[in-house]
Design a protein around this nucleic acid. Structure first.
Lengths: 156, 156
DNA sequence: GGTGTTAGTCAGGTATCTTTACTATATGCA
DNA sequence: TGCATATAGTAAAGATACCTGACTAACACC
């Protein structure tokens, strides 16, 4: 395979990512979670297990606070999350997963496990593990929310 | 790092993908291509070098034909692409990159090269090459547009 | 020639997203 | 402690991105 034919690395990262997203969303629908949209689901998946601030969700989803707020409103109405006071800041509330959301997380988890098993079988354990390790390493310089990211390289 | 703390693989594919997209879009803006939106740019990047059918673009972008058509209208107005008759099908036209689009492709290309050089330097040549190879392999079972994809595994 | 399929446009509409402005709360500093 | 600045998140108003259903001309196949 020569370079002319090779898909660029950005695209080749996107392909399996989208596969995962598509398949998980479909599995959720098949499991009865067919009352929400992909956009809502995308915000939902960013809610941390111990709850998230609206502004964090908005940052991570690269959307405005109001968009995120609107999505959370919808998720709350649908029973996937709840807003609770944030004990550390009187202005803020935490968005926590509950009710239907907890069940959806189980389905998503199980589907992802299936997918990863298939990938592992296809790639072999060694390459699968390497993939995880390399991507974790890459996240160190590409993830703005990494815990202690090195300074990202400046543009040339 | 134990499994509880590890970001799931879907997310870890997304992180560098988004980094690439963000950085390239910013570079295009800085280079004067600041007259288009990310949604337009996303459709644009799917236009093949020898031209694309509208319906192919719509498929690949997972959007409706009309949405894709509207985006192409806008790209055409902005001078990034042109519609030409498809010699193989009288119903169809090809969307080809021209004018501003050709210049934008150069900027995008150069930016991607920069990014990949940085990744290569950070990961080391060996892991960088492994990453490419593994992702190419993974695309065989995750890319609906792969040339001769094996049958994708069915959901459990 | 007849039938079923497809490319891409139209009509009508919804979903998702934005910026600006605002108030209550929090933070930092003199 | 008081004041200036910053922040969380909601409201208002609006733009952009996207959808489904319908349609006609062209295509593919028998």
């Amino acid at each position: 395979m020569d370079d002319e034919q090779r898909v660029n690395l950005g695209v080749s990262l996107f392909i399996p990512y989208r596969y995962t997203e598509d398949r998980m969303f479909r599995a959720l629908q098949d499991a009865g979670f067919d009352d929400w949209t992909l956009a809502q689901c995308r915000v939902f998946q960013r809610v941390a297990p111990d709850g998230s601030r609206l502004t964090d969700l908005a940052d991570q989803a690269q959307m405005s606070k109001q968009s995120a707020g609107g999505m959370v409103d919808q998720l709350e109405s649908l029973g996937y999350v709840r807003r609770v006071p944030d004990p550390t800041d009187g202005r803020a509330r935490l968005i926590v997963i509950e009710g239907r959301g907890l069940q959806a997380v189980e389905v998503a988890r199980a589907t992802l496990d299936d997918i990863l098993s298939e990938w592992k079988a296809y790639l072999g354990t060694r390459n699968f593990t390497l993939l995880q390790q390399i991507l974790d390493q890459l996240a160190e310089i590409t993830d703005p929310y990494a815990r202690s990211a090195p300074q990202a390289p400046t543009s040339s």
